[in-house]
């Protein structure tokens, strides 16, 4: 991870999967933006492609505070060295659910799995572990998924 967050701000961690489904990056930047406006310190973790997408999309870090390599981030969570207050795990395949299950098992924080992609509903049905979920069959168009996220986090009434 990059520099540590400010100690007085609540910390949110967004764990992204492989960026092959277009809505993921848009929704991640949107959620990060919303959380930052509420005072959260936001770290986005992902594979090298995810991190490059963020560097290109948000070069001056208007939307994301920090970025982190996924493997290193998981190590810190498992070892108890990182203790975010909120984890959003993006999942469009079984591997994404594996990360959600692991985060839910090792982190004491609120964990929300954002399940999207063509098979979102079928994927959500395979979840056999306790987990808060937001499910939407979104691939290219992020609006329906954004609506559900707004509702869960109370952002729906806010002016866009």
């Amino acid at each position: 991870m990059e520099k540590e967050g400010e100690p007085d701000r609540k910390k949110a961690l967004l764990l992204l999967g492989c960026p092959e489904v277009p809505v993921q990056m848009g929704i991640a930047l949107y959620a990060s933006h919303r959380l930052r406006k509420e005072g959260w310190d936001v770290t986005v973790a992902g594979n090298p492609s995810v991190l490059h997408l963020i560097r290109v999309s948000d070069p001056e870090r208007h939307y994301v505070d920090r970025i982190a390599a996924l493997d290193r981030c998981m190590e810190k969570l498992i070892e108890g060295k990182a203790k975010p207050d909120l984890c959003l795990v993006f999942a469009h395949n079984d591997a994404g659910l594996s990360y959600a299950a692991t985060v839910g098992s090792v982190a004491p924080s609120r964990v929300v799995a954002i399940i999207f992609g063509r098979n979102a509903e079928e994927l959500a049905k395979t979840i056999e572990f306790p987990c808060e979920t937001i499910v939407e069959k979104a691939v290219h168009n992020p609006l329906a998924l954004r609506q559900k996220i707004d509702k869960v986090f109370g952002w729906a009434a806010l002016k866009r």
Binding site: E20, N47, L70, M74, D94, A95, A101, T102
Partner: peptide, 29 residues
Amino acid sequence: SYIIGVPPILIGVDDSHVVFPYTKPCHGT
């Protein structure tokens, strides 16, 4: 390495070998 996965996670023993799941985010388990 840390196992990333959905519990219960089983690790099999086959003579002197271990059999276990390994997840890569882009490629699956």
